[in-house]
Design a protein around this nucleic acid. Structure first.
Lengths: 231, 231
DNA sequence: CGCTCGATGTCGCTG
DNA sequence: CAGCGACGTCGAGCG
């Protein structure tokens, strides 16, 4: 990894065109050739960048550029598209290189996939006597998170979100509309399950006859741990 | 901006929980207090981070941590939530600070608006005899990209996307519902136009009587260039 | 390789 | 401040 702090200007062309006027920034060149241009604030997102796979070619400035104070021009070209990032370096304030090695990567916990897995295992949370049909039950517009049967044999479609927003209710509504066209399934009941359900989503869900179910992730994981520990 | 290259481990708790095992990484501390943890590859996104506003507190390791080789612990706490990032530094390989100043920011020029402009100019792409009424035709829930009239005088509402997804069909459906309440306009026909239309979106659109139109951006731009060149 | 969907999404605009 | 749409969305998982 190479770290350069420099006064620089940049231009990106590709899916859009964007310009960065002359200012002092951090330029990071990673081992895979990717380049990041960071300002001293904002957020984790760079002002501009090039994703791997890409190649970096360093060029001397032409007379015109040299006259503008450019000491080096970096051409960063994406390998599989015509995306291009051009950086004009005017003054290099810091330049260092470091061997970092391969990163073992981030281990996440508590994302939607976990919730889905846990609810599938603890399907009784939908109510006593419910039975799992399958996870990711396919429809023409995409898979429903969970399809289950209630004690009376009626189909139940479950949409799971970490945070229950209106979007999720809309999504579930579309699934229900399609599933209810299947004579073998209809009538299909809808359950909107999330760790936290926004009031608006709750209202909309209720309006459409969809049941809301708040999931307690910690408790569900506790159950999972318990069962794992037992066997 | 402070740049630290160090062997470190990290843990994030907040909207989810995530862990980073011990490895050598770049730690960036920006002027606004935000922190980025980058590996030597991947993409522009850090492995882990804390967005501003947040505060950084440096602590000495306790005996247990010191025994594990920790030389310093950074507690990064978000100011407005309980999001928290904890970084254990095991070995600092580089540490430098730099004054960058304020960044003038990125100037963008997008493709999205261009598509709308081109289709408005080449409204015949909707079918021979179509006439533009106006771009950004206002409704109570926001402007429709294009309103046109077909040769029979019927209203046509067009939603334009670069990538045609289900969301866009939903959006157009809402517009159509509102537009069709206007007795001067109804019945309004819907056209979903995009450079690329996903199969699911196509199914949903067809289901709702909405026409799909694939736009050839290059060809449309070519037409534009040609007309520009001629006059 | 393409497609779909989630995301600590983030960003920016508007009411 | 909230809501909503766009993003150079990115990235994982699956067929």
């Amino acid at each position: 990894m190479r770290l350069v702090v420099a006064r620089c200007a940049a231009r990106y062309t590709g899916r859009l065109t964007a310009e960065l006027p002359l200012a002092t920034r951090l330029v990071v060149v990673k081992a895979d050739g990717s380049v990041l241009l960071h300002s001293d604030g904002g957020s984790y997102k760079p002002l501009n960048w090039m994703s791997p796979p890409c190649s970096l070619a360093v060029a001397e400035p032409d007379d015109d550029a040299a006259a503008r104070g450019v000491v080096e021009i970096w051409h960063v070209q994406h390998a599989k598209s015509d995306d291009r990032l051009e950086i004009e370096l005017h003054e290099v304030l810091h330049d260092s290189a470091h061997e970092l090695g391969v990163d073992p990567g981030l281990v996440k916990d508590g994302v939607e996939a976990h919730l889905q897995k846990l609810l599938a295992e603890q399907i009784h949370l939908l109510g006593a006597g419910h039975v799992l049909v399958r996870r990711e039950y396919p429809t023409a517009i995409g898979p429903v998170d969970i399809l289950a049967k209630d004690p009376a044999g009626g189909a139940v479609a479950v949409e799971i979100k970490r945070r229950g927003d209106i979007d999720g209710v809309e999504q579930l509504t579309r699934y229900l509309e399609l599933l209810n066209r299947d004579p073998h399934l209809t009538p299909v009941r809808g359950v909107f399950a999330a760790q936290e359900i926004k009031p608006q989503a709750r209202v909309l869900a209720h309006d459409r006859g969809i049941t809301c179910l708040v999931l307690d992730y910690e408790a569900m994981r506790g159950m999972d741990d318990a069962s794992t520990r037992l066997f």
